[in-house]
């Protein structure tokens, strides 16, 4: 069995390795408001942020397409959840770990993700 048959053979773009901090995500981890902070401030009792099911669906789709199999995603979530993102609550931690894994596997680039984040924010503020 050669390495090219591995389900996710994309070369990592983060040169420091799969567990090194990624600046874009570090900014979000530090400055982002988690659901645990936002919900009580707005008097919302929902335990989970509205985007959680969409995040789960993204994970399912990546797994169904064999782009990022469940076991590999879960392993990355575990490793990153015990290291880089250990202080972040669960749904946000899972999101950071997914974005991190997609970046280190070259499924997304840091530049395009940063650009898209700006666009999405502009769109949401305008709406």
């Amino acid at each position: 069995m050669s390495a090219q048959h591995r389900p996710s053979s994309a070369a990592p773009t983060a040169s420091q390795g799969p567990k090194a901090p990624i600046r874009l995500l570090e900014d979000i981890r530090r400055a982002g408001k988690t659901w645990a902070e936002l919900a009580p401030r707005w008097g919302v009792s929902e335990p989970d942020p509205p985007w959680k099911t969409s995040l789960h669906a993204t994970c399912e789709c990546l797994s169904a397409a064999a782009v990022l199999p469940v076991l590999e995603r879960r392993r990355a979530e575990d490793e990153l959840g015990e290291t880089l993102y250990c202080g972040t609550p669960a749904p946000e931690q899972q999101l950071l770990a997914l974005a991190h894994t997609m970046l280190t596997r070259g499924l997304l680039s840091e530049e395009e993700l940063a650009r898209r984040i700006k666009e999405v924010r502009t769109r949401l503020v305008a709406s």
Partner: peptide
């Protein structure tokens, strides 16, 4: 409802949109 945009909400949308545009699903 929470009437405040969080970086995490934005990140979730950005990741999903890019994945769809790249044809991952």
């Amino acid at each position: 409802m929470v009437d405040e945009i969080s970086d995490f909400e934005v990140l979730e949308i950005a990741v999903r949109e890019l994945a769809i545009e790249k044809g991952l699903f």
